[in-house]
Design a binder for these strands. Structure first.
Lengths: 255, 255
DNA sequence: CGGATCTACGAACGCCGTTCGTCAACGAAC
DNA sequence: GTTCGTTGACGAACGGCGTTCGTAGATCCG
């Protein structure tokens, strides 16, 4: 096997110039956990959860799906890593237990903003019990705030848990509109909501008034408020209840 | 190839008598939408959402997956039909706007009970904007109750929406423990929670106390309350806020 | 230099949701 | 009674999925 096409390190004739480099020296920046997570997040943002597959990530990195499993145990783990990566974008406000209600509310709004910004990550947010570095950083901040404001640890645990659940659930519900919009062929969010909301309103309005007087009579009110207003309303409900439960009770609900 | 085993339409020997009837006359109770939904629900309860596939439903009915598509447009539609079928199990309390808070709370608890009873249906509950007959029946009841108690329609719409979201989200989060339990090889819920909860507690307790003083210091409080207590706590928060917003304000929060 | 360990990855396994084309059954029209 | 259009049932297949296996190369340690 000492031919000119030998593959070992000592070719006896020069390689044809057009097939010189079988392996690119640099352009493939080597596989790594972070690179996989970053690529996955980019696909998630661009194509949604349905578009995110191990094969798709591998393709984006110029390799096969099997190569990813040296860095990530399973798709679910990849999703959790992406979620924690997203949590890294949360900017925490100043830590001030005296103004706990305002600060905590700011936290919730910021968390909501970040998750909604990466629409489909909300699914992972709801699914995982987050133990990544960014998740514990956020948990320590919010949980500690409630305790330092005077709430008993068990109540603080419950309150923190419920706030995060509500924020993620609202983001998750909102994220479900995206595939629907794509399925209906709407180009942008505004057009989608115009057609979709009017359909819902029409449906409720067309219900038989004798059996569904309130739904058919108030169809307009049922679709009056959009996602953001709904989210704030529920958040206010939660925080009002919370304020009433804080022992010291130094802040008023409306703050 | 003109042999006795010819495959074309004109066999030159009579059919063996024991394979006369290729189609069974009755035993298959005919395919129908309701039968498919019922079968799907049974599989969902027995094997979870991961076990529910069109192929699995078809197999249970002794046919192929293609046969289902004459009655159901897609898997998503089947899930929504199953969800509405489950909502049919909700038993509504007596309609009494004067005691709106108690009645509405009873509604939420009953809805939670039913959804948790069919663990994985919670995913469908969160995903769909429910328009089935049982869904509108429930909506008319809860929405109407708030209006007849004196709440402006737009507020009633928001309140109803948030309550249902919270109930479904909590059930959904709870349903995610089931696959985890199966993956960890735990036989029953009690064993699962003993091992899982103690792992979580250990994890928080092992965090560096200088950077995570509250999480590591109150690890026990973080896992003290189980799913049902967490659910009630959040529900109470919502209803307290709601009571404070009802114009007439005839009921006290604690009712 | 030899062996062990780790990354890369082509190939394959067994699923999945859905579509296509065919085939039998059936009611209406002639 | 025959024809025909419609409809439900369904075998086969398409393209995609998550994951595993076996192997080849690289890298590091002794």
């Amino acid at each position: 096997m000492r031919s000119a096409n030998s593959d070992d390190g000592l070719p006896d004739v020069p390689q044809p110039p057009w097939r010189k480099a079988r392996r690119q020296p640099q352009p493939k920046p080597q596989l790594s956990r972070d690179l996989i997570v970053e690529t996955g997040l980019r696909i998630l943002d661009a194509e949604g959860l349905d578009g995110l597959s191990m094969r798709r990530v591998a393709q984006e990195l110029g390799t096969g799906p099997a190569s990813l499993y040296a860095h990530v145990a399973a798709k679910e783990e990849l999703l959790e890593l992406i979620y924690d990566r997203v949590l890294g974008e949360v900017r925490l406000p100043d830590y001030d237990p005296a103004r706990w209600l305002t600060v905590l509310r700011q936290c919730a709004l910021e968390l909501h903003r970040v998750i909604v910004g990466h629409a489909d990550v909300a699914r992972a947010a709801l699914a995982s019990i987050p133990t990544g570095p960014n998740a514990v950083r956020l948990a320590e901040f919010m949980f500690g705030l409630l305790i330092d404001a005077g709430m008993p640890p068990r109540d603080a645990s419950l309150a923190f848990d419920r706030i995060v659940l509500y924020v993620c659930a609202d983001a998750f519900e909102g994220s479900l509109h995206y595939p629907r919009m794509k399925a209906l062929g709407n180009a942008n969010l505004a057009e989608y909501f115009r057609t979709y909301v009017s359909q819902i309103e029409e449906y409720f309005g067309s219900l038989p008034p004798d059996r569904f007087p309130h739904l058919s009579g108030h169809a307009q009110a049922l679709v009056a408020d959009g996602g953001e207003a709904r989210f704030r309303y529920g958040l206010d409900l939660l925080f009002d209840g919370l304020a009433a439960r804080m022992p010291a009770g130094k802040q008023t609900p409306g703050a």
